[in-house]
């Protein structure tokens, strides 16, 4: 038996690509949650003292514990509260919430980089609080943090295989399935790795270019 079988590789490729589709969907939806929720957490993190303490504590807790355990947590605990969701939905939620704690730090750094004078000028103009955020602070903070957010999307993409823990058939789930059925893992896992590299490496290069473009400006 050869170590590498091209025919078998070709045979399992459609299943892997199907899994890749699931991986990409989970990443995109997870990112949407992470971007939105992270911004909320960042803004709340600057709110009144009690809110701030609770939010920062929660962020710290989620950041310091494994995403896989958080996935299991939602999967096994939510039904007890009468909330029954599909595995992929739970996975997307867990990815989104976990990465929101990272993006909130990114937003926070971006917000703090907006000079004090901008806040003072907005206050001097008596802009309403909401408008200060949407009209002055965030438009300056967000462009600055885009590369960092991009890096987290790539990280999330590489962490979606954790969803196989609750039976989601993403690319690694598919690889594990077709590998197990045929007792041949070499092609399945090698292809899975290459597909990851194929998407994430160009993405990483693009983010680095964006970073450099921002650095020179």
């Amino acid at each position: 038996m050869n170590v590498w079988d091209w025919n078998f590789a070709a045979e399992i490729l459609p299943a892997l690509l199907n899994g890749l589709r699931v991986t990409v969907i989970a990443t995109v939806l997870g990112s949407v949650i992470a971007f939105a929720l992270g911004l909320v957490l960042a803004v709340l993190g600057r709110g009144p003292r009690p809110v701030r303490i609770v939010v920062r504590g929660l962020v710290e807790f989620i950041r310091s514990t494994p995403l896989l355990v958080q996935i299991y947590f939602l999967y096994f605990v939510l039904p007890g509260f009468g909330i029954v969701l599909g595995a992929l939905t739970i996975g997307v939620l867990a990815l989104g919430v976990h990465y929101a704690t990272y993006t909130s730090e990114v937003y926070r750094a971006g917000i703090e980089a907006v000079p004090r004078g901008q806040w003072e000028a907005a206050t001097a103009l008596s802009l309403p609080r909401g408008r200060v955020w949407t009209g002055v602070v965030l438009p300056q903070a967000i462009p600055r943090v885009l590369p960092a957010l991009g890096n987290y999307v790539i990280s999330m993409f590489k962490e979606t295989p954790l969803l196989i823990g609750i039976g989601v058939l993403d690319i690694v789930g598919q690889a594990r399935q077709v590998g197990g059925e045929n007792f041949r893992y070499v092609e399945a896992y090698t292809l899975a790795g290459l597909l990851f590299l194929l998407l994430s490496y160009p993405a990483a290069l693009a983010v680095r270019r964006l970073e450099r473009r921002r650095a020179v400006r």
Partner: peptide, 23 residues
């Protein structure tokens, strides 16, 4: 550096666990 950062840790684990022994 790029190879390891570009692929998923779970894939790397399965690769070392299931593929490397074959090789």
């Amino acid at each position: 550096v790029e190879g390891l950062r570009g692929t998923s840790e779970v894939v790397q684990l399965f690769w070392i666990f299931f593929v490397l022994p074959v090789l």
